[in-house]
Design a protein around this nucleic acid. Structure first.
Lengths: 254, 254
DNA sequence: GCACGCGGTTCGTATATGCGGACAAGGAGG
DNA sequence: CCTCCTTGTCCGCATATACGAACCGCGTGC
């Protein structure tokens, strides 16, 4: 592990994640880097416009960070299409929809389209959540056997909320059952008061991504459930088709 | 300038920009870094998932890059709203629309919404273009005097296409005139066969961003011009209002 | 008004990093 | 089949980087 590199990355992640202005000492404390070591690094990051220094000397994320991520995302023309399908689904369902992939036991959220009915923001693209606690994650894990799940999660499943499934055996059984039905759900397992449904997206038969919808419990109507699922499945089918055609790959997954 | 930091950033920019797999020697040649120095850096970048190594040992951009940019963009809730307005404009006009800010003489494109009529991709978010060559850039430069322009561009204006305005005096005159009219245009000055219109977005009276529409010349109809402008102006007014309210700031500009 | 705490900057030294060269492995071409 | 070339890996030495301590400037509270 190369220390200077590691430090640069941790600094960038810190500013991007928190979004608040940080002072030299804040970095120093948070990351355990001596102040004097930090200074030349921060100055260089400023030169390259990854950081900018406010008048009061504080550091803030700057545009190069954005360009970096956007340039990367720009290499995946499929994403625009995914977004279009999500928008269509949101239009029909009226709730926020997500597109995500599996990454080492976590869901990595890639796209989201907000519902017209505003609700506090749940997850932003780029964020990760334990797959076993989310509907979209269950869809992504659905084809894994109990043994494979144990390999992915060698330790116990850390609960995210009180309702998170923490037993691998239970999870595996749930996945098997949902795989039969063709859709996956989650009730307050990752966020209180939220219920999610998800369906997988396949390429060459294998699950490579999933889309989901998040519904606040107080707005949930049981009789609409099959409509939600159907809408998601239509979108998923379209996305699968495009991915199949364009042979897109995203990170480790696609 | 801190060498290790500089190198990390250049490596990240290289993979994000090009989008093709790169080998150790490619980095070495491209960036002038000795192979042996590169190895530990690349390994660290892999650990942190900024890069991944394919079976053949080549390096490729990985998901952490995406998370970084997305996390940053996620700090600007205003962006979702900007996108909504762009979508509305695209719906009415039927051509691709952009949202960008000025950054050191360049337009930094932040958002785009594709036209339903497919055309080859012009610019992706995160990319930069010389402001003087684009409609959106002219809107962003509109309040600068000729003297200020000369400070921003101490050297001559490098032409992007044959039609790019390369004389600062001409540019200044054009800006003044467009400022009167309330909109800015560009005819094949940044891209052949493309014509653009742009209007500024203001906060506290000052121009802080702009939106534009790009129209292929063969599809352009003169009699619709005022409709294009009006649509953009409506969208700009809405966006200005929101930015004013939320007091959003984006990088150096907002 | 003074002392103290806190944040940023500077500096000399110890050391981890960077470098070139040597080496091994694989492929292409004769 | 052998040779040459290319690429990635390893190694020891020179050096740029990292670290802690001391210093400076500022604000706060006593």
């Amino acid at each position: 592990m190369h220390q200077p590199t590691k430090r640069v990355l941790e600094i960038l992640e810190a500013v991007a994640r928190d979004g608040e202005d940080k002072r030299l000492v804040d970095f120093s404390r948070e990351l355990g880097i001596p102040k004097s070591t930090l200074l030349p690094i921060l100055q260089t990051l400023c030169r390259y416009r990854y950081l900018l220094q406010t008048e009061s000397g504080q550091y803030r994320a700057d545009t190069a960070l954005f360009s970096l991520g956007a340039a990367f995302a720009g290499n995946f023309p499929t994403l625009d299409f995914v977004r279009k399908q999500l928008e269509k689904a949101v239009e029909q369902i009226g709730e926020t929809c997500y597109f995500g992939v599996l990454e080492k036991g976590d869901v990595l959220y890639i796209e989201k389209v907000d519902s017209p009915q505003p609700l506090r923001i749940l997850v932003e693209p780029g964020r990760r959540l334990p797959a076993y606690a989310t509907a979209i994650g269950k869809a992504l894990l659905s084809e894994r056997s109990e043994g494979e799940l144990r390999r992915i999660y060698p330790e116990d499943l850390a609960p995210v909320t009180e309702k998170t499934v923490t037993d691998i055996r239970t999870l595996a059984a749930q996945l098997m059952q949902s795989l039969q039905k063709g859709y996956f759900c989650e009730i307050e397992e990752s966020t209180a008061h939220i219920r999610c449904f998800a369906v997988p997206i396949r390429k060459g038969g294998r699950v490579i991504a999933a889309i989901s919808v998040a519904i606040p419990i107080f707005r949930f109507e049981e009789e609409k459930e099959s409509f939600y699922i159907e809408t998601l499945q239509n979108a998923a089918a379209e996305i699968s088709r495009i991915i199949e055609e364009t042979d897109a790959h995203f990170g480790t997954i696609f």
